[in-house]
Write a protein that binds this DNA or RNA. Structure first.
Lengths: 148, 148
DNA sequence: AACGAAATTGACGTTAACGTAAGCGGAAGC
DNA sequence: GCTTCCGCTTACGTTAACGTCAATTTCGTT
């Protein structure tokens, strides 16, 4: 059976008061962050999230929610899930905190360097292609001129 | 047995005259373009290259060499091998040529748009991360100040 | 009790571009 | 005649981040 996301056009039962609650179901988070249930379970398998269990069901705390936010942020800026997990694990040790922050800061800076390299590569590809386009256009114009 | 590339420090038997030849072995092309033999065979399986056979051995013509050049160019600018093959196939029809050029030109322009989008994404990631770095630095400085 | 909706686990599938291993064949050199 | 070198084929492995499917199970209604 496929996992269904139907039936919530505007009839969400989360009132203003309930929005301030501290626990979320898997569907809550999936909806809020636009990911699938499968994704959340996958992140759990990878050790990125560790929701409590109420019997069989997963219950996500605010901390889980915050971690998910960080995971998605990390993905956006190009970190792999493994890298993200390492940083989250570091962040959880909470003892020397300063050291952990420095480690993450270091990673961030390295990633910025990598991203800037990637940006340059993309820019080169763009100018290569642009040049090629110009050449092809030139050829086409020439032919048009000859044919006309 | 691993495929070996040893024994050619400077004793290449390709004289100036021989460089102008019209046929190449698989190793020739691999060396010249910095790809592995496996890669060239893989490209062949994918229909990107179609070298002649001299018995068992592959013999690459200048046309094959030119196609390889185009393949690597295409990869550099972000096309998949399938996309590259399609364009090469088009290019081989050689009949209405102009149409084919226009098709490729269209693809190129689309790819440029895609690349520019990718560039923007990377730029956003960079500024996100840069901001995060600033925040973390701020926190660290604050702590240092308090501790000292 | 029955039903449907939502959730669970487990496992295999997907995509791209090759890498890697295993085993075979022919030519060259000693 | 044996080893090296070079190449060949077949086929499974790899990486990332999930998707998809199957077979249940739990829950809240009716």
């Amino acid at each position: 059976m496929k996992e269904h996301f139907t039936h919530f056009p505007s009839d969400d039962d989360t009132s203003d008061i309930e929005r301030a609650r501290k626990l979320f179901t898997i569907s809550d988070l999936a909806r809020e962050f636009g990911v699938t249930l499968r994704t959340l379970r996958f992140y759990e398998d990878k050790g990125l999230l560790t929701p409590r269990r109420e019997g069989n069901a997963r219950l996500y705390s605010r901390r889980d929610r915050a971690r998910l936010k960080l995971v998605l942020m990390g993905k956006r800026v190009g970190f792999s899930l493994d890298e993200i997990r390492e940083m989250l694990d570091l962040y959880d040790l909470k003892d020397g905190q300063e050291t952990q922050l420095r480690v993450s800061l270091e990673r961030f800076r390295e990633q910025i360097v990598a991203l800037e390299r990637q940006k340059r590569d993309v820019e080169e590809a763009i100018s290569d292609l642009t040049r090629t386009c110009d050449v092809v256009e030139g050829i086409l114009k020439q032919r048009t001129a000859q044919a006309g």
